[in-house]
């Protein structure tokens, strides 16, 4: 088992290195002047020259790549002219907002998908049809449009929850940062108004961000459950006298979850891209919104670091999904050892 994980780990490192190469190539080898791209459209000739030297653009190709990699590993991700900060500080200072959004969305997606898929595979007819429709709509809607529709309905028309106004109402002061999550930090302060205000601000963005992974997981789980339900061992369990619902929970669900865990990385990916697409809709002060601004002002240093970081995150996510899968599923454990 450990040998197997070591191999996967090695493969992941190789993939990350290759990914860094891809992100390097995209910037340096494509037509256009990288120094100009990185320094930004408003930079003067001197700044561009300085950037060119800093990037080592006079060096041979692979030396440039080595320099790029070294800088990245050291944590020197360049200067973002659109934010006016080092890329690293810019990213880390906005991470908490994104994490808070993504974590709630992640939980909603998983719990929601479990409920939907169970309903769909256990109750044929109308309810199964509704779940299927939900999955189709969820998979077909771009997250930013979902945000727009939610704002139109729940904010502009019904006025239930705030629309594009960030994490807090303007009259409130952000709580002292402990976890970086406004909901939790307010709760630690015992500030009920703060908790409910920050929670209300979370509702619509969380829904917009969660819909795609929710629908995706629902679909995946439903398909897995349908496959599992017709397996001979389910018939054997039923022949023992176990009723339909306990059979579903004990055997169908358990066997359907396993292949779902390994798509953990994919969920992570939808979260990352989702936050890029959703945060601007709600003026959410997170990493995604910053990236979108960076894109419109052609801030390549920011964009490059962001995509490389998300690639690393994505690879790690896949690795963790795999490892968890192995831990739960005895078959994978021993087959790995046998080979």
């Amino acid at each position: 088992m450990f040998r197997d994980i070591r191999q996967r780990l090695a493969a992941s490192v190789v993939t990350i290195v290759l990914a860094s190469f891809v992100s390097f190539v995209v910037l340096r080898a494509l037509p256009g002047d990288p120094a100009r791209l990185i320094a930004g459209p408003l930079a003067g000739q001197e700044t561009i020259e300085a950037t060119r030297r800093g990037l080592g653009l006079d060096e041979p190709f692979f030396a440039q790549y080595g320099l790029f990699l070294w800088d990245f590993v050291r944590g020197d991700w360049g200067y973002s002219f659109s934010v006016g900060e080092q890329v690293r500080t810019a990213l880390t200072s906005r991470l908490a907002a994104t994490f808070e959004l993504a974590l709630y969305a992640f939980l909603l997606a998983i719990v929601g998908a479990l409920v939907c898929a169970s309903v769909a595979s256990f109750r044929p007819g109308l309810r199964r049809g509704l779940v299927r429709l939900f999955a189709l709509v969820g998979l077909g809607s771009p997250p930013f449009w979902v945000g727009l529709v939610l704002i139109v309905v729940f904010s502009a028309q019904l006025g239930w929850w705030p629309g594009p106004s960030g994490r807090l109402s303007p009259q409130l002061v952000p709580p002292p940062s402990v976890t970086g999550f406004h909901t939790i930090d307010f709760a630690l302060q015992g500030d009920i108004i703060g908790v409910s205000d920050s929670a209300a601000h979370l509702v619509l963005p969380v829904l917009s961000l969660a819909l795609l992974p929710w629908a995706f997981l629902t679909r995946l789980l439903t398909a897995n459950m349908a496959d599992t339900a017709v397996q001979p061992y389910i018939l054997v369990v039923r022949s023992k006298g176990v009723a339909a619902w306990p059979t579903h929970v004990r055997h169908v669900l358990a066997n359907s979850l396993l292949p779902t865990v390994s798509s953990c990385g994919l969920i992570l990916a939808t979260m990352i891209t989702g936050s890029v697409l959703v945060e601007t809709v709600f003026n959410w002060p997170g990493v995604g919104a910053m990236l979108t601004e960076g894109i419109s002002s052609q801030d390549f240093a920011l964009v490059q670091s962001f995509i490389l970081l998300s690639a690393i995150l994505y690879v790690i996510g896949n690795l963790v999904g795999d490892a968890v899968n192995r831990m739960i599923d005895a078959r994978l454990r021993t087959s790995g050892a046998a080979q």
């Binding site: 001979p232 061992y233 018939l235 055997h251 358990a254 066997n255 739960i328 078959r331």
Partner: peptide
């Protein structure tokens, strides 16, 4: 019931 194909008649997990 004793079912055919013992390979798939027991819950693998």
């Amino acid at each position: 019931l004793v079912f055919q194909d013992p390979l798939t008649s027991l819950d693998p997990v």
